[in-house]
Structure formats: C-alpha cells, structure tokens
C-alpha cells in the first residue's frame, strides 16, 4: 500500500467545550456509531470552528450539519446539537459555504445556544468520521478552542 505506517490524524476542539465519548451521546444514531466513530462536544461558546484543515463538502440545508474533507482524507460530519434538524435552520448562522478551504480554527457556524436550548434541544455536537477511519484516542473533559480532542487512523 501507499502508507508504510499509519499516521495518526489529529482533530482539535472547535470551541471551548466539554469533550464527551461518542457512546454517551443522547442520540442513538450517533452513540451507536451508525454515522461513524468520533466524539461529541458540549460547546461553552457560540462560535463553532473547524477541527481540521480541509475543504467544506457539506452544508446541510438546515445549516446545523457541516461536512469537511480533511487534507489527510477523513470525511468529517459536525452535527450541531441533537435533533436540531427540527429547528429548520433557526439558531445557526453559517460562516462558510460549499467548497471553502478551512483551517483548524476557521469559524464554521455561529450558533445561538440560548435559542437552541430554549427549543428543548441538547447542544451536544457529535463530530464523527463517516469514511473508513477509526478513533484511537479521545481526550475527554473540558478543552479550550484549538486543543487536541481526538486522534484517528485509517482502517486497513
């Protein structure tokens, strides 16, 4: 194969947040890793930034889900809040569009945490890898924006 050794790809906190293991997420689609392996964050601030360097490959029509293909090849889904598809875009202000190049720390979405919480939605934000990578390390607990939160490696 092309890779002689598996490189660990690092992902960084998209906001000041608490990092939660994926199996503790309140939505079974994520906790059972149906979408992919990863972790979740509980943001303590409104600006959600990119955890990787890469390109925006998805801005869901209701703005609460953003996809990024990292420069290493991981396909990342950042799903802001639980069941937030039901908010139909309210509470989310996109900072990027499809095809934008982003770096670690580039603002992706400005969210209204008070509004989302007032609508009865959890702010737990799963960050999962939807293609063939596995998580080898998650740094649990409180993190500052830009701190290491997760390491992943390619399968096979």
């Amino acid at each position: 194969m092309f890779q002689f050794m598996k490189k660990k790809i690092e992902l960084f906190a998209p906001a000041k947040c608490q990092v939660i293991p994926i199996h503790e997420v309140e939505d079974a689609v994520f906790s059972q890793k149906v979408v992919g392996d990863g972790c979740a964050i509980l943001p303590y601030e409104d600006m959600i930034c990119s955890p990787v360097n890469g390109e925006v490959t998805l801005v869901f029509r209701t703005n609460h889900a953003i996809g990024i293909k990292s420069e290493e090849g991981i396909e990342l889904l950042i799903h802001i809040g639980i069941d937030t598809v039901e908010l139909k875009g309210e509470g989310f202000e996109n900072q990027v569009k499809l095809g934008d190049r982003v770096k670690v720390g580039t603002p992706l979405s400005k969210i209204d945490r008070d509004f989302i919480t007032a609508q009865g939605k959890s702010l737990q934000t799963p960050i999962v890898i939807t293609n063939d990578y596995k998580v080898v390390e998650v740094e649990k607990g409180d993190k500052n924006v830009g701190a290491l939160i997760m390491k992943v490696v390619q399968n096979n």
């Binding site: 490959t57 998805l58 889904l77 939807t130 293609n131």
Partner: peptide
C-alpha cells in the same frame, strides 16, 4: 456510498 454526499443532496 458516502454519507456526506448523501446528506448534501438536501432531499426532504
């Protein structure tokens, strides 16, 4: 075969 591509369809 790609979750992100499927979600980007934006189909309701």
């Amino acid at each position: 075969k790609s979750i992100l591509s499927l979600m980007s369809v934006g189909a309701g």
